[in-house]
Design a protein around this nucleic acid. Structure first.
Ligand SMILES: [Zn+2]
Ligand SMILES: [Zn+2]
Ligand SMILES: [Zn+2]
Ligand SMILES: [Zn+2]
Lengths: 134, 134
DNA sequence: ACAATCGATGTAATAACATAACACCAACAT
DNA sequence: ATGTTGGTGTTATGTTATTACATCGATTGT
């Protein structure tokens, strides 16, 4: 169990499953992985995910209807990331999380201009990773 | 019928429904709107959408699982847009489509750096439009 | 004309993703 | 002790998307 915070048992199980997996998983895939641990119904997963998303420990990939553990390890540039972007390989499924302050800036600037209050921003690139593109 | 190209009957009907609607619609909502015109099954909608997406006449909103007619009317800056972004109001449902070459540039630069070949890029802001934010 | 091919269509069934509704329980504060 | 809060378990249902198979029509090469 590598759970960092005061997670409940279900939350920790889901977080752990996502952390171990080297890639995104759908809620139902997570459910299957956790049947041995007593999970029986989708809601158990969705409820845990909801909390983990709130805490920022997990991200949802909208274009995949699936979920990944946050790989933003309080590192280098900034620990409390703003908008996150994902590059998703269609071939091997690998996902890399990144963020870019210039993009944040441009989006914020657009929002300011239009008077739009952004709550949540999704940026996802689908394509081929360097390994798969050759 | 405001269909521009050599669309088939079903494609034109779906495109027309999306164009009339002032906002995104799910495939099943489109289906319901087109029952009077002979639509009976989801596949009729999905197949038409697939073609319309290919042609760039329609965009898919990943975070909403729904679809909008492209509002990029061969205008001002450039007619053949690269990456499109959407600002989606959670309150009134209004969607505004925009694009930003600086963002395109940053994403392309990231891709170059990582050797990632992007096929499709999703950028969606969820929040409140100026009217709804007050 | 004939067959082959291709793209679009119609229909039924099913898969995949997500939420509603209700009951129960433990922790904690009043 | 009692109410409130947050997590849990369970069943059922709602929503979104695809698979599989049959048919039809236009185009094309012979
Ligand atoms: Zn992250
Ligand atoms: Zn790859
Ligand atoms: Zn443009
Ligand atoms: Zn609004």
């Amino acid at each position: 169990m590598s759970a960092p915070l005061n997670l409940t048992k279900n939350q920790a199980l889901v977080f752990d499953a996502l952390t171990r997996a080297e890639g995104p998983m759908s809620a139902y895939t997570i459910l299957d992985k956790l049947r041995d641990h007593g999970f029986r119904a989708p809601l158990q997963v969705y409820r845990a995910l909801e909390k983990l998303l709130e805490l920022g420990l997990v991200h949802r990939l909208e274009s995949l209807n699936s979920f990944v553990a946050c790989s933003h390890t309080a590192e280098a540039c900034c620990r409390h990331h703003g908008t996150v972007a994902f590059a998703i390989c269609e071939s091997c499924g690998q996902v890399s999380e990144f963020h870019d302050h210039a993009i944040d800036e441009r989006l914020a600037s657009f929002a300011r201009l239009k008077g739009f209050k952004a709550e949540k921003t999704t940026i996802e690139l689908r394509g081929l990773c360097s390994a798969c593109a050759g």
